[in-house]
Design a protein around this nucleic acid. Structure first.
Lengths: 145, 145
DNA sequence: ACTAAATACATAGCATGTTATGTATTTTAT
DNA sequence: ATAAAATACATAACATGCTATGTATTTAGT
């Protein structure tokens, strides 16, 4: 008896699926004036929350410089506003602008649409299994990084 | 009885897992002088094959301009060589350089390592299920794009 | 034969993410 | 009290991938 070779296509599959999902979201978000990378920011600030960059980066699961440039683009596009925290001048307090707040209302319905399409042909059980296994793989990968 | 809400986290999970996998591969490839985006090219040309850009783009599952810039960087770094097809001057025949060929030998073992780490804690059955479900989701997404 | 369509590749401009590094500001330790 | 460490954010340089578009070259239609 010998150990079965690990499936080599998993990396390709994971990155491809992620890319396809991003593309689908871009398609749906574009008409609404939003971009895929902005989703976590809209989700975090969508009820008028005021949060700092560090929190947003962790929430989005990206590094700090990535969030910094994302927020710079969103500020440029009038989606967010920043204000220095008077209690700690290193921190900037970030909130959605009225326009950003309005746009953010469409995020959840759009995500629902996209998820529905992604899960087309899946039973609820298959859906739950995929989620669970992906979460476990995600954790495994995080642990060895 | 009401329909269960579709899981909204699937997009985040898919893109995050893909990104984490890419990061892991980068870590392993860097010491060997390779980058994550180059993997499909190394796989396609690793036995001395001579292929054109269109084929490589399809093989890698990315758009043509993406492959064009990838190949430009790989040529810059001495990993590939290009030659115009004499039978059709639009086509460029692409092959790995001796250095690229040598480096490509390490791709499969590195992919095996990464897959092993990604699947840590998975039973063979779970592994197969994840692959199958991801393939199905990938197909669903491709269909609606 | 010759124009029009198709094909292969290149380029521009951008978004997203990464690592590496710089710059203020605040906290900690002596 | 002050020097050192930690923290929050910004910037630089880059890879990867996208859409839109341009440029040859080849193929097809008349």
């Amino acid at each position: 008896m010998r150990t079965q070779a690990p499936c080599l296509s998993i990396g390709f599959l994971a990155t491809t699926t992620g890319r396809l999902f991003t593309r689908l979201m871009e398609q749906k978000l574009k008409p609404a004036g939003m971009r895929a990378g902005q989703i976590p920011v809209f989700l975090a600030l969508g009820k008028g929350e005021v949060l700092n960059q560090k929190y947003l980066a962790e929430f989005a699961g990206i590094e700090q410089p990535g969030m910094a440039t994302l927020l710079a683009r969103m500020e440029r596009d009038g989606l967010i506003e920043r204000e220095t925290d008077p209690n700690d001048k290193r921190v900037s307090q970030i909130r959605l602008t009225p326009d950003g707040l309005m746009k953010s209302q469409k995020i959840i319905p759009i995500m629902e649409e996209a998820s529905k399409e992604a899960f087309k042909g899946f039973t609820p059980l298959e859906r739950d299994i995929l989620i669970t296994l992906l979460e476990r793989m995600s954790s495994s990968l995080e642990r060895c990084l």
